[in-house]
Design a binder for these strands. Structure first.
Lengths: 261, 261
DNA sequence: AAGTCCATCTCGTAT
DNA sequence: ATACGAGGTGGACTT
């Protein structure tokens, strides 16, 4: 993470840092006194006060007060940001098209201003929904197919966990990868990795399977699958089964949570 | 705004700064690599990545990625925050009661950490709604009282604008402060300031009023008023009039917006 | 504390 | 581009 900090910069210095950060597509954070005007879907004014301003490289613009989880003013991603100095005062403006919206921040005293190039390739995994799906399938294996017998959940292989391991009615091994939303290429790649991991590890399931000359079936279980992934599974000999994740299980879920390890 | 910054602190130093900030009820901002676990109404995991963490004195806890206006993980106000070091690693935990929710952040390399005591006494004014109310009152002055004659809108005094200035049927001056939502102590203080401002400025209304030995009445106009504000207005000799703001005027409002000054 | 309703809802997805 | 629905919706207000 490359970053730079300025303590109590002049508005000129702050303007320079801002331009530098924009050029580098960095995220900007400012602790400063400011005054805010917004017009667009609604219309608002916020008088002088100390706040935290966060400007992200995707165009998001947030102004936070010292209370609440929601920003007091903001602009969504893809908004165009602009800074200028007028009467020795630094202004930040963020403009959105469709619908047309304008956020204007007039800066006062700036305490801390910094920018940083943030590297983050991870996406949030909502494990809850997949767990619900898993629960549902363990309870009603026929959702997958007639005669399906699940044996193990969260089976550990080198690159992660196989969601559900089981057998079909002819005792072929079945390896299920669950997705609570439309399955994409990533899901197929993940399952492929798990299949390879499984095939390379010396485990009892595998031995038994080979002894009985049974197959290993890989299955993507998701509400839907996108086109590219669909082509891929045919090439890879992977199967797709459409299953919608269950809804309204929140209360049950809470009971199973074990807080404080 | 009192503040302190640490660049690339050790986890021990960061822990110290955290405790200091909590004691001072400051707002904390951290640019760092981290890993996040959440369980409560849902269940989520977020693997290592660089993010911005914001912890507010009201207990709000936000983790922002470099995209989107919404935080990737968060806790609402009144959550209890706790920090500890385990295996030389700094963890931040935020716990909410009812519903029970836990957010755990495992920190990696910390680039910038700072805290600041933010002073902000201003509340967002959704001027759209107040403008609607103002329009309605100008059109139907009897909403306020029989014989009310509004004369001026947005009358400029030192600390801001008086929403509506007018006279009652006995020609006493009336100064109206409009609120589109429940009026609180802030609203009363604001009106008080405007009354003082008005009284100290040399304007024609005031001269005429004094010449004719008329009174100056201060009125809060809002849908409702909270208990503390109610006590206050009796002490201050201010009046309260209950008026609901009109609804469904958004489309009209947009037309009147004049972008780019 | 629980329920209802609004939001500059945001965000994803399908059309 | 627009339409529709879900969300750890948040947050204000009522009961």
């Amino acid at each position: 993470m490359k970053y730079k900090i300025l303590e109590e910069p002049s508005h000129d210095k702050a303007y320079e840092l801002f331009q530098e950060a924009i050029k580098k597509k960095a995220t900007i954070s400012i602790f400063a006194k400011c005054k805010i005007h917004y017009e667009g879907r609604a219309l608002s004014e916020l008088n002088w006060g100390e706040r935290i301003i966060l400007i992200k490289p995707d165009g998001s613009f947030l102004v936070h007060q010292e209370k609440k989880v929601e920003p007091v003013n903001w602009q969504p991603p893809k908004s165009r940001i602009n800074a200028y100095i007028k009467n020795k005062t630094l202004f930040l403006e963020s403009i959105r098209r469709t619908p047309r919206e304008l956020l204007r921040v007039e800066l006062g005293y700036i305490n801390v201003m910094n920018y940083a190039n943030i590297e983050d390739f991870e996406e949030l995994e909502q494990t809850g929904h997949e767990k619900d799906m898993s629960d549902m399938i363990m309870k009603n294996p026929h959702i997958i197919e007639e005669g399906f017998k699940p044996t193990t959940r969260e089976y550990n292989v080198e690159h992660g966990f196989i969601d559900i391991l089981g057998k079909d009615k002819e005792n072929n091994l079945m390896i299920l990868e669950l997705k609570s939303r439309k399955a994409g290429v990533n899901a197929i790649k993940q399952l492929k990795r798990y299949l390879d991991d499984f095939d390379e590890s010396e485990n009892d399931y595998l031995k038994e399977c080979r002894a009985a000359k049974k197959k290993i079936r890989g299955l993507i279980v998701a509400p839907s699958i996108d086109e590219i992934a669909k082509e891929m599974i045919e090439e890879e000999g992977i199967e797709f089964i459409s299953v919608d994740p269950p809804k309204e299980l929140k209360i049950d879920k809470k009971v199973t949570l074990d807080f404080f390890k």
